[in-house]
Nucleic acid binder design. Structure first.
Lengths: 146, 146
DNA sequence: CATTAATCCTATAGATTTAATAGGAATTAC
DNA sequence: GTAATTCCTATTAAATCTATAGGATTAATG
C-alpha cells in the first residue's frame, strides 16, 4: 500500500507543477485544494525540500517551488524519498538492500526470484514517468512510446 | 513491503510443492526448515486452507497438502489472500476497490493514473508466475516465454 | 483405550509503523 | 512592528503487523 505521505507528496508536487507562474506555492493553498491535512503536508514538503526536489521561500508571500524541470523528476526518485524502497522485500532492493533473517541463501529463495520480477516491472514504470507526465501538461504518455 | 505473513506463506507453499510424495507435510517440519515461527505459520496455513489452496489431515501423521496442481496456482491469487490488494491504492484495485477520501474525481488524479500502470505491470508478473515456477521443478520460466 | 501427535480455533499481547497534531522559532514582506 | 509564512522537534493517536497463548478436536498406533 502506498502511504498517505507519498500520495500527498505526489499530489503536492503535481499541484506545484501545474500552477503557472514563478510564484512560490503555499502549503495552505495546496492543503485546501487537495484535501490534505496542513500540518502533515508541512512535514512532507520539508522532506521534499531537504531531498532536493523543492526550493522554498520563507515569510510572507513565501512558499515552495520546483527546483528542476518536471520532465527531469522521475517518479522512482520521488518514491524512494517518500515511500522508501521500491522493492517489496529488502533482499531485492537496489538502494536499500538488506539480507533476510530467514534465508540462508537468497538465490535459493522462491520469493526472491518472484520479487525481482515485480521490482523490475515496477521500476520500469516509475522510471518512465516523470512529474511532467503526472501533471499532464503534455499529451498522454502512451502517445510518446511505441 | 511484503508482509512476513505473505513471505512465509509463499515459502510454505513452495516447500510443500517441492516435497515429493503424497504424504501431508507438517507445520513443524516447514517451520524448522524455513525458519518460520511455528505458531505464526500455523495461522497462515489455516488461512491458506480456508481459502482453498491447501487441504489438511488432522491427527498423527497429519499435515497439509496442495489441492490443485502447482501450475494452476497463480501468484496473483495467493497474494490477494495473504497480502490483500495488489494495487498500491484502493481506488485502483480490481478486487478491493474503494474510493479515496481526498479525491473528488479520481480520473483527474495524477497518482491514480500512475498507480494503474504500476498495478497492470505487477499483475502481469503475478499472473504469469505459478507455484510451479516458484518451486522450480521445471526449467527456468524465461525459457518458456519468448 | 490410552497416548501421542497433529491440526483447529479464538483471543490477545507486543512491536512497529503510519498519520496527524502541537507549539513555538525563524524569516520575510509590507 | 505586525502578519504571514516556512522551519523544526517532539509527541500523541491510531492502525497494522508479528507473534504467542492456551486449549479443543481429531486421528493413528500399540
Amino acid at each position: 500500500m502506498l502511504s498517505k505521505k507519498t500520495k500527498y507528496g505526489l499530489k503536492a508536487l503535481t499541484y506545484i507543477a501545474k500552477s503557472e507562474g514563478d510564484n512560490p506555492v503555499q502549503i495552505s493553498e495546496i492543503s485546501k485544494c487537495e484535501n490534505i491535512p496542513q500540518k502533515f503536508l508541512e512535514s512532507i514538503m520539508l522532506t521534499l525540500r531537504k531531498s532536493g526536489f523543492l526550493g522554498s521561500k520563507k515569510g510572507k508571500h513565501g512558499g515552495y517551488y520546483l527546483i528542476k524541470e518536471p520532465a527531469q523528476i522521475k517518479m522512482s526518485d520521488v518514491m524512494r524519498v517518500l515511500e522508501g524502497p521500491i522493492a517489496m522485500v529488502p533482499c531485492v532492493s537496489l538502494n536499500f538492500y538488506e539480507k533476510c533473517d530467514d534465508c540462508p541463501d537468497e538465490h535459493e529463495c522462491s520469493v526472491h526470484k518472484l520479487m525481482i520480477q515485480v521490482r523490475d516491472n515496477t521500476l520500469k514504470v516509475l522510471r518512465n514517468n516523470t512529474l511532467e507526465d503526472l501533471s499532464g501538461s503534455l499529451n498522454d504518455k502512451t502517445s510518446k512510446i511505441t
